[in-house]
């Protein structure tokens, strides 16, 4: 084995006739934090659904821990998912449960651990995200950043080998944003996980990741370590990193010439 936990080669995916991914090559080594970046609608989230087996690729191979995800049946997929943690965009905490029950959810569903042990484990996980004191709050009482941290505690509940983060920074204030970024890095290092972060927050993620893939129009446009990316001369990467309005990614949606649309040409 090459030490790659996730290995993707020539991956294609289409919703009906609309192609979303057109030949992606991507890999994540064990213990790394890998970021997948791109502008909105470039297929990041689809890639993420492919890795977790929610949808199947039309072409190409996708291996997680040596298993070909596309070939797994429902049971195999569920076996694999038990070793994966997922952090959803807005946490996706169960609203009818307390913080404690949210974190305990997977332990209760998948193990026969006695309640006393579950209690200890849950408090340990919550302690790791700094929210041990909030265990008896309801999820509706949490702020956005706290909800994200609880969701993170829930994602690491069964000590997974891989965690997928779907836009972990979306809609957070700068303090919470830094907290989450640091948590991702720290948990990856201390628990020996592998993390794949789908995001478009360049500045925050460049601070903490090991490797970055830029995806545009369903293809890998650029890749490299944060230092390489910052130094990159590629116009797309430059536009993305510096947040410029116009560049390879156009400000205007494709349209007829402006005067023609306003019917000025024949006047």
């Amino acid at each position: 084995m090459s030490g790659n936990l996730v290995e993707i080669q020539g991956l294609h995916f289409a919703y009906g006739k609309r192609p979303i991914l057109k030949g992606i090559d991507l890999s994540a080594r064990k213990g790394q934090v890998v970021a997948i970046m791109g502008n909105s609608g470039c297929g990041k989230t689809t890639l993420f659904r492919l890795i977790s087996g929610a949808v199947k690729a039309t072409q190409g191979t996708l291996k997680v821990d040596g298993l070909n995800v596309g070939d797994l049946d429902q049971d195999g997929l569920y076996q694999l998912r038990r070793r994966m943690g997922v952090l959803f965009q807005f946490g996706a905490l169960f609203t009818d449960m307390s913080v404690f029950d949210n974190v305990a959810f997977q332990m209760r569903e998948h193990t026969d651990l006695p309640e006393a042990m579950i209690r200890d484990l849950v408090l340990m996980k919550l302690n790791a995200v700094g929210l041990r004191g909030a265990h008896d709050l309801m999820t509706s009482e949490l702020s956005g950043g706290m909800a994200r941290r609880v969701a993170l505690a829930r994602a690491i509940a069964l000590d997974p080998m891989l965690i997928l983060y779907d836009e972990p920074f979306a809609g957070l204030d700068p303090i919470s944003l830094g907290v989450i970024g640091n948590l991702i890095r720290r948990l990856t290092d201390t628990l020996g996980l592998t993390s794949i972060v789908v995001t478009h927050d360049v500045q925050e993620s460049l601070k903490m990741v090991d490797y970055v893939y830029f995806i545009s129009e369903g293809m890998v446009e650029a890749q490299g370590t944060p230092a390489e990316i910052k130094a990159s001369g590629l116009p797309f990467v430059h536009q993305f990193v510096h947040g410029e309005e116009d560049g390879p990614v156009l400000f205007h949606y494709p349209a007829d010439p402006y005067p023609a649309d306003l019917r000025l040409s024949h006047a």
């Binding site: 169960f94 609203t95 998948h110």
Partner: peptide, 21 residues
């Protein structure tokens, strides 16, 4: 309404991702 909202807030998807049917 409850199940619709659980779906809208990705709670159903989260459950599937946790290997819970």
């Amino acid at each position: 309404a409850e199940i619709g909202l659980m779906k809208a807030t990705e709670q159903i998807a989260a459950m599937e991702m946790m290997a819970v049917d």
